[in-house]
Design a protein around this nucleic acid. Structure first.
Length: 565
RNA sequence: GCCCCGAUAGUUCAGUGGAUAGAACGGCCGCCUCCUAAGCGGCAAACACAAGUUCGAUUCUUGUUCGGGGCACCA
């Protein structure tokens, strides 16, 4: 869908020296100037003339088709006024024809993606900071699928290691451990290990036993980590996060493929056993320039493996799936680790996944701190938001059943958190304001849902189906209508950028802008009580198309748009 | 100390090598006989600082300041 395609040729015809890449189309600062602006800077440079002079020449020489009503130079720009109804009809036709595929370039057709995300340590109920990984990962999964890829979403379950060992130890001292008590037990276990050396040693011993295959130890680890995973997944499911495969870290202990990696490292003189019998990689032998982080420990002196050692095997496992795109979503705290891992794998002839980093979520009054209880648990947020939304729904949608009302409230809650987090560029910290996120006002997910509900209300009241093909009588003359159509037309570009940038933030911002543009239209342009029947149909079609595009964008963000709210 | 990210209205976020830097929240003033006021209109309000590249820099470079993350036996 490129509404400006028909504008390129006449310009190229008038200036044969130019290529399509010398031309771009933007929106003029206000609609009085025109509907489309062509900046002349690039073209002028190529033709070695001044941009304003070229704009004048272009206006005189270009022979535009019927879609252009007028072309006027304004400084270095050529402003075009379009036959809005004609161009708008083409835009609408594309949206209504392509439906839930509108916006997809289908670049992923026939291609496979492996994405790993969330992978929260099984030690606590997730807070919104951890959940940023899940939201980013889940939305990327949806974006890849939207662009035509076949995607497998993986969740790496860190079901072993020293800290889990300590947790298992504490758990065995308790009568019973519930999911809610896990974090507390985890914190206590780690604290105790600090001053109680015997306790810490028992933890290491237990871990080693488990790694060596002791069935009782393995059963203990399994029970504790299953409890945690189950609790975590229940919360993540509320968010709408979906996973296809759960990979357990314990599966990758002593993986035979690691021998080959070690051999490759030895070959390069990058592997050594230190004075305490630890197996260590010297990354400086692999080209690691900086002094810090040049050592990477694979095995403890007692023979139990480190996280990175298992991760090497896991990463090779994912590589072996042979996907065209292999990505993993990581907190920025994992940057150096991922680089180290990648360096080791490369030395052994393997490729690491493409990392997608995100920064932490911080609270208004500073960093989150699990220890100080300064965290916003995802489940707490969802509970509060859902309860608040339920009150509104109860008064505004009284005719719906309690179950339906509850469903809507939950959808609003999920949209509030997903939108608040996803709309921020991943490489920036998100400052999370509980109060703002619960207000559902302004730049929020619920605002977009509300716009959808208004559209649905209009379509419901119209009662009949809307013709899916805009006819000759289609009209879109007003500024508000044109603004809406041109916004709709830009969705494919937004979705493509999101794919290449591996970020759904632009989609979130776009959805908000489209919803806002629709609201202006909603106030300026009566639909059901339009002046003429053809105007009514045209506007109904615009509503239909906007709902479609909003739905497409929201579904990438993992947000549902309720019928009413 | 060293390395990696970031810095835009009071606050939370957009944005761009070129037309008047957009929203929202908060503040003030208005709007429900009108397709849902979770809404709309109006007013006040910003490119951290300093050099450099450029016809033109908020955008690119470097330095400074501040914030986030990291720097071997955690995962």
């Amino acid at each position: 869908m490129d509404p400006y395609k028909t504008l390129t040729d006449p310009l190229l015809c008038a200036f044969p020296e130019l290529a399509a890449s010398d031309l771009s189309f933007t929106t003029p600062p206000n609609q009085a100037l025109g509907d489309v602006a062509v900046p002349m800077f690039l073209a002028a440079r190529k033709l070695k003339c001044a941009p304003p002079a070229l704009a004048v020449q272009a206006a005189e020489r270009a022979q535009f088709g019927p879609e252009v009503v007028s072309a006027s130079p304004a400084g270095p720009y050529l402003n075009l006024k379009l036959d809005r109804s004609r161009v708008g009809r083409d835009i609408l036709e594309a949206v209504l024809r392509e439906g839930d595929r509108f916006g997809s370039t289908n670049v992923g057709a026939g291609k496979r993606v492996v994405i790993e995300h969330t992978s929260i340590n099984p030690n606590a109920s997730p807070h919104v900071g951890r959940a940023r990984n899940a939201m980013i990962g889940d939305s990327l999964t949806r974006l890849f699928r939207f662009q035509g890829h076949e995607v497998e979403a993986h969740y790496y379950v860190n079901d072993m290691g020293r800290q889990i060992g300590l947790l298992v130890l504490i758990a065995s001292e308790l009568e019973e451990l519930s999911f809610d008590q896990v974090l507390d037990a985890y914190v206590r276990a780690n604290d105790r290990a600090k001053d109680d050396e015997a306790f810490a040693q028992r933890g290491y011993d237990l871990l080693l036993k488990m790694e060596e295959g002791d069935p009782a130890a393995q059963e203990q680890f399994r029970a504790v980590t299953d409890l945690c995973l189950k609790g975590q997944l229940a919360v993540l499911a509320r968010l709408g996060a979906q996973y296809d495969v759960f990979d357990r870290e314990s599966k990758y202990v002593r993986d035979p493929r690691l021998d080959a990696v070690c051999a490759a490292l030895r070959e390069k003189d990058a592997l050594f056993t230190d004075e305490e019998e630890r197996l260590v990689v010297d990354l400086s032998k692999l080209g690691h320039a900086v002094e810090e982080g040049r050592y990477f420990v694979l095995m403890r002196g007692n023979g139990s493996s480190m996280y990175g050692y298992r991760d090497l095997a896991y990463t090779m496992d994912k590589e072996a799936l042979g996907a065209d795109i292999n990505v993993m979503v990581l907190g920025e705290d994992h940057k150096m680790y991922a680089q180290q891992l990648s360096m080791i794998l490369e030395a052994a002839g393997h490729a690491a996944p493409e990392p997608i980093y995100y920064s932490y979520i911080i609270l208004k009054d500073g960093k989150m701190s699990t220890r100080q209880g300064k965290v916003v648990l995802l489940s707490d947020f969802l509970d509060q938001a859902s309860a608040l939304a339920a009150e509104r729904v109860a008064s505004q949608c009284a005719s719906l059943s309690p179950d339906e009302q509850l469903l809507i409230a939950e959808q609003v809650a999920v949209s509030a958190i997903r939108f608040a987090v996803l709309r921020v560029n991943p490489n920036k910290n998100v400052t999370f304001d509980m109060e703002a996120a619960l207000s559902f006002q302004g730049d929020t997910g619920p605002y977009i849902q509300y716009s959808c509900a208004r559209i649905r209300s209009i379509l419901r009241k119209h009662g009949e189906s809307v013709p899916a093909i805009p006819g000759e009588s289609f009209e879109a003359g007003t500024d508000a209508e044109w603004a809406l159509l041109s916004k709709v037309a830009s969705f494919p570009e937004v979705a493509s950028a999101a794919f290449s940038q591996r970020s759904c933030a632009g989609i979130a911002v776009y959805a908000l802008e489209l919803a806002r543009t629709f609201t202006t239209f909603y106030h300026d342009c009566p639909v059901l009580s339009a002046d003429t029947p053809s105007q009514r149909v045209s506007r109904l079609q615009m509503c239909q198309a906007v709902l479609q595009v909003l739905s497409n964008a929201l579904s990438i963000l993992g947000i549902e748009a309720p019928e009413q709210m």
